[in-house]
Write a protein that binds this DNA or RNA. Structure first.
Lengths: 361, 361
DNA sequence: TTGAAAGCGGTACCAG
DNA sequence: CTGGTACCGCTTTCAA
């Protein structure tokens, strides 16, 4: 086939292949393969000869062809908390959306819901995973010893592990996908401090659960920056509102009657239904209040648009899923992977830079 | 090979293949292929029979195998303006970084620098592209008729086109990769208005070139929000500082002597060297000034850290490159591609949520 | 209008 | 320790 007979966008390659290596090194394909994959049973001299040919030719391995020959496909499981959280829903939607695209890329995504905050079930689910059926697992969960150990065992069985959102500090750092929650809290504080025009006042901080490490870190970051730069504002102790609306109403009402000069609310949790309901019903109190919350969800998007929320700190769920997949794939393929470049960004959303609502949102 | 003999993370697939289709439909591989790729020369009945088999089996095509058999590889060219802009540098760095990763994915990235704002050279470069050598092109540039026509011609020749950063409105909307600059300007305004504590004052707006559509759109968005929400602040006419430092000094000095109550600066351009130099030298004037600029670069990162800049509006160069590649690949493969999901986000950076400096940054 | 068969770039068995 | 060879899933001649 001559060049000018090629259809539009097809380009005939000239990249060196394993055959070229074999020919140049004067060995067989099988031997080249052994060297390429660091398999045993090749003499040092031969290895060197092959390697010489490899870099003389500037050989670059074709991952797709390799995977084809191996009949390898990637089966990735996402272990998600079974809380009725909008944010987790988003994540799940993203996983499903990307699953269809990745299907013709030999990559299968599966989600499994587990009782929230229950490290026993997480550990159990991890232990259940068969390396023959699962090449990688992405897990969200508390960093208890049980979970940590189960992760080690999974890794040992040859399953790639990605820790989502809540850092699991004892696991290798480069398995973490998510934002730095301390910085997220600092960011919230900076916005809070600058948005509040009043000379003094109190800030209410809401948390979902005192157990959640991410909430805690946000709070710490928030406090640090507020203390340093906005000392004229006083920060009230955290108020716990679990994903439980009636309760939040009472708790919030209490807070507002105890403290009369509340001028800002920072909600460290991703479940804002309770807060938003409260704000809607007490619109006079909400007036002039600076509200900063976490995660972009249908609810929080709406609140940002109507002005109930002034700013949102968020992390891109699509990006998280893509990163997790890239990370797990790289781990399975045993190719180097720049974890730094995967770092999820801490996004700030105002009404003005809200991304358009996508079907997947 | 029994299941329990499989090495760690290898999973033997069970997905239906073309062979299964052929068998079930009672035709040959070649015919299946013809139907799958909508090639001519197959009877209607046969087509139906094959299609029936296809969805009975729930067949999903293996793109990698297809590309392998086709010897197809993707050659993508990035046409970049040859301005000495830090932002373009970032973009180029990202392209290079991703080029190495994509190399074993049958995807080659190439950059070419063209005189900035010169639509003739862009058009010429586009016309030069051979479909046999180039499967896709990503172009940054002004949206002149010349460029627009060259893009049409390239598309017709079967080259996938992605329009980066500056929307080329006449080209199909779904070829655009970049942020909505009007919204970016609105975002800047919202931050500006909320960050400024003063009751009144003037805002200086800097632009790189009045020709740049993105700068213009930012300005428009900025004005709209300022007028609507922060009418107590007055916006001065745009001041043009081309990527030319000595000039900016004079221009800025002029502005400050003409208007004494400047309390904020919004720089719509990505070249901030001039502004930053000015601010450094006039630190007394810079005091209390709210400065908002565009794009995260080494220079602007530093300025944000030291406090010369208060907030940065930015777009993720890594994401832009990845999106462009995904878009071009999907176009070449003629698979549907959700452009909405590729929309680049308008990022806001404060000192607190600055992403860690990566090697590629 | 259809089918057989030879690859694409690798991998992995089995024999030597 | 090394080589021959049959695939992997799909595409593409070439012949019928």
């Amino acid at each position: 086939m001559k060049a000018n007979e090629l259809p539009g966008n097809v380009i005939s390659g000239v990249k060196p292949t394993v055959n070229d290596i074999a020919r140049l090194a004067g060995v067989s394909l099988a031997t080249v393969d052994r060297v390429l994959n660091a398999r045993p049973g090749v003499r040092k001299v031969t290895i060197q000869r092959v390697n010489k040919a490899i870099d003389e030719l500037g050989y670059i391995r074709d991952t797709a062809a390799a995977n084809l020959a191996r009949k390898r496909f990637y089966q990735f499981v996402f272990l998600l908390p079974d809380s009725n959280s909008e944010f987790i829903d988003e994540l799940e939607t993203q996983i499903e959306a990307q699953a269809v695209t990745l299907a013709n890329d030999r990559t299968h995504l599966l989600t499994r819901k587990l009782p929230a905050f229950d490290s026993q079930s997480i550990a159990f689910a991890l232990d259940e995973l068969q390396p023959e059926a699962t090449s990688g697992v992405a897990v969200i969960g508390p960093e208890t010893p049980a979970v940590r150990d189960a992760i080690s065992r999974a890794t040992e069985r040859g399953i790639a592990v990605a820790a989502l959102l809540s850092d699991l500090p004892s696991s290798p750092r480069d398995h973490f996908i998510g934002i730095d929650n301390t910085s997220a809290g600092q960011t919230a504080a900076q916005l809070m401090g600058r948005f509040i025009k009043a000379d003094r006042g109190s800030i209410l901080v809401l948390t979902g659960s005192r157990l959640a490490r991410d909430h805690l870190e946000r709070r710490l970051g928030f406090d640090a920056v507020m203390r340093e730069h906005f000392a004229q504002l006083s920060i009230l102790p955290s108020v716990e509102i679990r994903d439980d609306q009636p309760l939040s109403d009472i708790v919030l009402a209490n807070a507002f009657s105890e403290t009369t000069d509340i001028c800002g609310i920072y909600s460290t949790t991703a479940s804002n239904a309770g807060l938003l309901e409260f704000l809607k019903q007490r619109s006079e109190q909400a007036k002039g209040l600076v509200v900063i919350a976490h995660e972009l969800t249908p609810l929080s998007r709406q609140a940002l648009l109507t002005g109930s929320i002034d700013a949102l700190i968020s992390q891109d769920t699509g990006h998280i899923v893509r990163s997790a997949v890239r990370l797990m794939r790289a781990t399975v393929d045993a190719v180097p992977h720049n974890a730094l470049q995967e770092r999820i960004r801490i996004e700030i959303f105002l009404k003005e830079n809200l991304p358009p609502e996508t079907p997947a949102d």
